[in-house]
Design a protein around this nucleic acid. Structure first.
Lengths: 238, 238
DNA sequence: AATCGCAATATTGCATGCAAAGAAAAAGCA
DNA sequence: TGCTTTTTCTTTGCATGCAATATTGCGATT
């Protein structure tokens, strides 16, 4: 009656899952710009499947909030506003605070060494600011989430980290290192020391800084109407 | 190029969405027990649609974590373990804490009245403990999430509330009112008074109590194998 | 008599096809 | 020329059908 214990098989087995994951990666990696149309036909053709598969994948991405689905009109890559961006960071801060609090006390010597090693590797790449460095910085947060052993927390942190990258890509300053290795190091040390409140505060401050770096100014206007409104109000149509 | 600003149309328009929402309600209302099989045929027939629709709805519910999808085997109502349950509550507490903190200061007289009215209606149904009362209690949390104006927070709170219902269905005591109207009232009053830390503490305590009520004892074994293992060890097969 | 293997059955995975809703383009009117 | 209306065309929404995979029941074998 009950299914076997297998939770979420490692590699995607059905075509729908494959396309689902591929599309998600494409969106997160900014290969598909926010607002882009996602026609079922084109997707199916790209992956060598029928529209049915593309359609199912789009529906699932819509549940994840990465795609906007408009009935009878089609699917579009989500296009978070600046305000949405702030909201995403709010959620992320709450989640990672809980994550850090949960982690205190679960850190043994093995894990401690692993974390220190990871931070050291980050520091080594700190000078560069390419995709690799950015990916590594994000992975720090994902690793911590994984260490909690809480599947839902891991999923949500993964999602929020992804979406924060998206937001940073849209509104962040081009050449800012989004995560400082030094800040990560401080968090790790607080965790190892068992200082719950300290670690939580450091993480909170860390994310607050990342957010403020990005979200202070709206570098890109999100909607055409927002852009044009500024011009329209100076024009007398009559 | 970009789609119009319309986010998530109010009422579901496509059949897929309708079935999706209906199935979710059925699961949350505990009309479909955790672990139950969800055959595409039966669902399609129930709603008067084809399997295609049922299939899409199941895929979306799987993303939400309410359904387990096993390739070539079928769909099952999610069957969270006790540990999963704890993890879900951990996440929910973190989210709702952030929610309450965000809400303080956003409460004007109109909203205050609306919240008080909602709590009053809850109190009126407090005696009963049927599906309607349960639904209303959950809606309190969803309403608060909606008031933040944070779409991601709303989505995550919605998901965690849903999954907590599932967990309570599995492990909670049968006749416990899961959310006390009095506790909700206290939270609302703290919010209206602008007492951020107080409101956060009340919410945290509220959810901690709900969790502890449910998760102290494992009333139901999750997996058939877990159940049978206890019997098997007393039996000599030979 | 219990176990193994095989066939029959049920259910999922996926593609195709048709109808309808929207968008774009062309024609008609002021 | 500019605006409305109608027509065409693209794209989505959904059902059906076929192939593939897992499960169940039955019979053969040891």
């Amino acid at each position: 009656m009950a299914p076997e214990r297998t939770k979420s098989a490692g590699s995607p087995r059905t075509r729908t899952e494959k396309v689902h994951h591929a599309l998600r990666s494409a969106i997160i990696d900014q290969r598909l710009a926010p607002g882009s149309r996602l026609p079922e036909d084109a997707i199916g053709e790209s992956f060598g499947t029928s529209r049915t598969i593309a359609r199912e994948a789009l529906g699932r991405l819509a549940v994840e909030g990465l795609v906007d689905l408009i009935p009878n009109r089609g699917a579009f890559v989500a296009n978070p506003s600046l305000e949405d961006g702030r909201g995403i960071f709010t959620v992320r801060r709450a989640l990672e605070r809980a994550m850090v609090l949960d982690l205190v006390g679960k850190i043994d010597v093995t894990i401690a060494a692993r974390l220190r090693d990871m931070v050291a590797r980050e520091a080594a790449l700190a000078a560069r600011n390419d995709a690799e460095a950015i990916r590594l910085a994000g992975e720090f947060h994902l690793t911590l989430a994984q260490l909690t052993g809480n599947p839902l927390l891991l999923r949500y942190v993964t999602e929020t980290v992804s979406r924060c990258s998206l937001v940073l890509a849209m509104y962040g300053r081009p050449h800012s290192a989004d995560c400082g290795a030094r800040e990560h190091s401080a968090i790790v040390e607080a965790l190892i020391a068992g200082d719950a409140e300290g670690a939580a505060a450091l993480m909170d401050q860390h994310l607050a800084e990342v957010a403020s770096r990005a979200l202070l100014s709206s570098r890109v206007e999100k909607d055409i109407r927002e852009v044009l409104a500024a011009y329209a109000k100076d024009i007398d149509i009559g």
